[in-house]
């Protein structure tokens, strides 16, 4: 499964919605992720992609859109 699809799978699981947001659509402004769902989303990314997201990267703006999450994970896993 490609990275984008795996990110979407986690987003759908933690938001409880079968959504497919636009690449640059804010996951917060659209109401898909509140503060606590964001925490689950970040933990879900760590599990799915086998990465550790350090405290220094725990900023909501890094996970605001699918594009940002995609780019972040690509940088982490390359």
């Amino acid at each position: 499964m490609e990275q984008h699809a795996r990110i979407l799978k986690i987003l759908q699981r933690v938001s409880g919605k079968q959504v497919n947001p636009g690449q640059n659509e804010s996951l917060f402004a659209s109401g898909l992720l509140d503060s606590f769902a964001l925490t689950d989303f970040v933990s879900g990314l760590e599990e799915e992609f086998g990465v550790t997201i350090p405290d220094s990267d725990l900023s909501a703006r890094k996970f605001d859109t699918i594009v940002k999450v995609d780019a972040y994970l690509s940088a982490k896993t390359k």
Binding site: F28, S35, F36, L38, D55, L58, A60
Partner: peptide, 13 residues
């Protein structure tokens, strides 16, 4: 307060 980032940090720390 950037509430989302605060919660992210607090839930770990």
């Amino acid at each position: 307060m950037d509430g989302r980032s605060v919660i992210l940090q607090a839930c770990r720390k």
